[in-house]
Design a protein around this nucleic acid. Structure first.
Length: 232
DNA sequence: CGCTTTTGACCCGCGC
DNA sequence: GCGCGGGTCAAAAGCG
């Protein structure tokens, strides 16, 4: 099985533009070399890790010219990553710029314990929703049997404007006897709620990204009202 | 013992 | 203004 990846990482890799296909922004600066190769495909270009791995023993016959070319590419990719980091910082309200300089888009859970005081249970919804986030829900990525449906949603921003986001709906077939509503999609989710909705006798489970407390990616999982072996 | 899940209570948007 | 219903919180319970 591939190592479990989190939605936070996926969020760093791909997010949806206002009205077009997803833009891939996998920031590999400073990351160790043991990431799976598929990660590098995301950018469509060679990553720093690729370049570095090539320079670290995988091409023993490399000439000085080749090394210089790779260095130039490395510098170019680093510059691209810097620009992308700035872009993300702008989109996320400068959250990224305050994080560790090693290029990790999301703080590790162990270090992400915010010094901010714990929010009280009675805190207003404004304090939750006015933070800067991508507000993109991703469900059941790569589950294979699912049918994806993208829905554009206008997400209000704190400055009064709206940003068009994508909500992906995916259906997949699971064991009807399985009542856990846990869909193994390769990401780490933490269940934080379950409700019975009016239009469906099956309960709806709410999951949020378990990678970092600051990651606000969420997903909802509910059995189809028509076919209990299908979850949406 | 620490992390995750469960679940009842609460918050808030929306329609009437 | 009020009630409904979806979404979220957080204490308690469960689990490894």
């Amino acid at each position: 099985l591939p190592p479990a990846r989190t939605v936070a990482e996926a969020c760093m890799c791909c997010f949806w533009t206002m009205d077009t296909a997803p833009v891939c922004l996998d920031l590999m600066v400073g990351r160790p070399m043991d990431h799976e190769p598929s990660r590098a495909r995301c950018t469509g270009t060679r990553t720093e890790a690729d370049v570095a791995s090539s320079a670290c023993g995988r091409a023993p016959s490399m000439t000085n010219d080749e090394a210089k070319i790779l260095e130039a590419k490395l510098a170019q990719v680093s510059e691209e990553n810097r620009k992308l980091t700035e872009m993300i910082a702008y989109l996320y309200g400068n959250q990224v710029s305050r994080q560790s300089p090693d290029g990790e888009g999301q703080p590790r859970a162990s270090t992400a314990a915010s010094p901010t005081p714990p929010a009280s249970k009675k805190r207003s919804r404004d304090s939750m929703d006015t933070s800067h986030s991508c507000d993109v829900e991703i469900s059941n990525r790569n589950v294979g049997t699912g049918e994806a449906e993208h829905v554009d949603v206008d997400s209000p921003l704190s400055n009064g404007t709206c940003r068009r986001i994508k909500v992906k709906k995916v259906c997949t077939r699971i064991d009807p006897s399985d009542t856990s509503l846990v869909v193994k999609d390769g990401y780490q989710w933490r269940k934080y709620g379950q409700k019975v909705t009016r239009d469906n006798p099956s309960p709806r489970a709410y999951f949020r990204c378990a990678f970092a407390p600051s990651c606000r990616v969420k997903k909802k999982v509910q059995r189809s009202a028509e076919d209990s072996s299908v979850v949406e």
